[in-house]
Amino acid sequence: MAFRRFVSHKAAVVSCIIIGILALFVILAPFTARYGVNQSVQAPPNSFLSPRSNAWLGTDDIGRDLYSRLIYGVRVSLLIGLASALISVTLGALVGAVAGFRGGKFDDILMRVTDLFLAFPFLVTLLVVRNVLGGLPWLKPLTGEMNSVRFIIVLFSIFGWMGVARIVRGQVLSLKEREFVEAARAVGASRRYIIARHLLPNSVGPIMVALTFSVVGAIIGESTLAFFGYGPQAGDGATSLGILVGAAKGAVQTGFWWLAVFPCFMLIIIALSINFIGDALRDATDPRLDRGV
């Protein structure tokens, strides 16, 4: 039923195909990319070449092929998105389930903290929390250097879990009152058993939806940070969609349109596709729609 509804969402199916192709391109980067990450196109002078046959999407200020760099960049960005989404969803689902199930002080404090975080302008919280994480020396073993990809993943995991926790909490609160949970409680099932066997499996729909939206959140977040110069550094030849979009800012005034247009459109395509998938998942798993004719 849910699957049929998902497939009937045309935009989501197209999005799945797009993301699939992108993933394939990115996994097969050694074959699909034409140049190395930091390799210059061999035709000096080669900086700021407009799109042409030996550089399909043009080159940047030091002559690197934008097409190849986009592949490497999307690879890093998808990794950041997936990794931090998985961590934050796991964390958020557990915290949300416990908070919703137990209620009381723990729940109160959790809601207050997330309220506070969500009320603040996103970028401000992001930058301040980023600096605080970087400013706590004892966190170094976990987070790594402030400009590393690992640091970014930890940062967005810390951000992402709150939204997920709220969603799961809400779901658990409404499930808690349902008969099958009452029945489980009546026959003396333990709390942990009820959470693991009844509450979380019945929250799979919202959790999946939260997962897709966290992936987008982290990818856009990384780009935002990089755009303002706080993202991961292009250290050992790595790049990311954020770094490429950040470089676009400088390209606007000088009129090297390809440097702005291609990374921006890549980000839009990824964000839109994953959002469409999430939207279709939400429609497909919404139990309220099951009764409709």
Binding site: S223, T224, F227, A260, L267, I268, L272, N275
Partner: peptide, 29 residues
């Protein structure tokens, strides 16, 4: 509904870059 969906999916700095490129830089050219 679809336009709105596209609208919320595009982060503001992306639309800013693209609109700047179009209305300021290329318009001038």
């Amino acid at each position: 509904n679809t336009s709105a969906f596209v609208g919320i999916s595009i982060p503001p700095f992306i639309s800013a870059i693209l609109l700047q490129l179009l209305f300021a830089v290329y318009w001038q050219r």
